[in-house]
């Protein structure tokens, strides 16, 4: 079985978000980059399949050379080879097209992405990629069982879960539940050493259309200071709710 896991290179979840160049660019000073958490659930699920049934795992990223440490980490976790498409991932259609251009001739049985990246939170690439490859797509995937060529998939729906069945190839956009957080793997020293020798292929981006661009970023307004009121001072509470909060 051939599995492709798409990896986004994103700021660590605890990062303080700031912007530079007149708020037109993300300020990466002091930022630690990680595998997108939703992608990491998918990579770990792919590792389970590899270990139980046998599979070859390719990880792929659209990004500049600065994203290679993130791909190396995925190799250290256990992926067999990596591909970096040398382009700035600035638009979902552009990224999905580049990924599709690579994947269309590789005959992957299963493609796993995160349901969204935690930087732009677009959630657009998985569905677009599946459409460009003309394969079934399951979003917000919480569970996966494989039986030969048949996949049983659980997806999140509003207010519950839904179980679906289908034949491979398919594309799953995963999240927590595909594996649990306790199952995520920290690369061991042996894995890190082996990752240095695993192939990381760089592909130049071909033609693909960018349909959107970011003009600027803004930070949310700072929260107002909290006014503390004595527990028995109901009159002051009512007065403030009326005159300042203006909710009554």
């Amino acid at each position: 079985m051939k599995i492709l896991v798409c990896i986004s290179h994103v700021p660590d979840t605890t990062s303080k978000i700031n912007f530079t160049n007149n708020n037109t660019e993300f300020d990466s000073n002091g930022i630690t980059y990680v595998i997108n958490p939703y992608d990491e659930f998918g990579l770990t699920r792919a590792m389970f399949i590899k270990e139980t049934s046998g599979a070859t795992i390719t990880v792929i990223n659209v990004g500049p050379s600065s994203t290679e440490p993130t791909l190396r980490k995925a190799l250290a976790i256990g992926a067999d080879n990596a591909v970096r498409i040398n382009a700035e991932p600035t638009d979902a259609n552009y990224v999905a097209r580049l990924l599709a251009n690579y994947a269309k001739n590789e005959n992957f049985d299963l493609i796993i992405t995160g349901r969204e990246s935690i930087d732009y939170n677009g959630g657009a690439v998985p569905g677009m990629l599946a459409t460009f490859l003309d394969i079934p797509f399951v979003n917000a995937c919480l569970g996966l069982e494989l039986n030969g060529n048949q996949a049983t998939v659980i997806r999140e729906i509003d207010g519950g879960k839904e179980t679906l069945e289908g034949n491979l190839p398919m594309l799953l956009a995963g999240q927590k539940g595909l594996v649990e957080e306790k199952d995520l793997r920290i690369p061991a020293m042996r894995g890190i050493m082996m990752a240095r020798k695993k192939p990381l292929t760089v592909i130049e981006a071909g033609d693909a259309e960018k349909q959107t661009s970011v003009l600027k970023f803004d930070l949310p307004e700072a929260k107002a200071a909290c006014t503390m009121i004595e527990a028995d001072n109901v009159d002051q509470l009512v007065q403030l709710l009326h005159s300042e909060a203006k909710v009554i």
Binding site: T131, F137, A140, E156, I157, Q211
Partner: peptide
């Protein structure tokens, strides 16, 4: 919504449309 998130990218890809989410 969950279903909206599932279909919006497919619709955008099929219509060759720009998709702006959130």
């Amino acid at each position: 919504t969950n279903n909206g998130k599932s279909i919006a990218p497919i619709i955008a890809a099929k219509r060759e449309a720009a998709l702006i989410t959130n």
